[in-house]
Amino acid sequence: MTALLEVKDLKVRVEEREILHGLSLTVNPGEVHAIMGPNGSGKSTLSHVIAGKPGYEVTGGEILFKGEDLLEMSPDERAAKGVFLAFQYPVEIPGVATMNFLHVALNAQRKARGESQLTTPEFLKKAYAAAASLNIPRDMLKRGVNVGFSGGEKKRNEILQMALFEPAVCILDEMDSGLDIDALRVAADGVNALRSQGRAMVVITHYQRLLNYIVPDFVHVMSKGRVVKSGDKELALELEASGYAQFEDAA
């Protein structure tokens, strides 16, 4: 079986400073991986590099997606192939209606894959169904992308995109940041509904709390740009009890 996502000995610099010092991670279809670690351990850098955000220099190692070199692809190519990053801080785009954005984005991905374009009625049907399952009111879809959305609404909008684009790998970057417990539960339910045999998720989080709702198959602890320990979901509970200090010393 080919892994969905293979990160091998990845070294990444930002402005002359190395952030990732040889990180490896293998994610297979159907698996949910949690990546935990203190602030500054390189968790978000990993998610950005996987999505192709400019400003990062990969100085060593590779990232393969279904065996293909992901680092050679532009961000939009990665999206079309099935890589999805749920942003920690989704941006606001005034003047671009959410519905229009979703339609344009979905059709761009379909076009890149050589699939037919969805007409407006076809798209609306799909979008309304997905929105309803996430308790997203239609009114919200008419507003500018994330403009005036609460923290919870922004995260639900990310999950709505996940549902519509049907990616193979979802990277959830600090999905719990800025959410109260009720908003967190709604978001986690949305994510859980998208778990499937063929799809993998990488859940990046600082706190164990999120993992009560999205239960991972594997937990990795990152510190100072490396994975310093891997285990199952019990590892997250250990961390909650003992903190990250032990790993910072070890790294």
């Binding site: 532009s74 939009d76 999206a79 942003f87 671009v96 344009v104 984005a105």
Partner: peptide, 28 residues
């Protein structure tokens, strides 16, 4: 805004498509 462009590209829009959408919004 680079962060808006990246968001759109991470959703599958090419550079030109992302620019076009933001330009439309700007003149909108």
């Amino acid at each position: 805004d680079e962060s808006l462009l990246f968001y759109l590209r991470a959703r599958g829009l090419s550079e030109k498509e992302a620019q076009a959408l933001l330009i439309q919004a700007f003149v909108g």
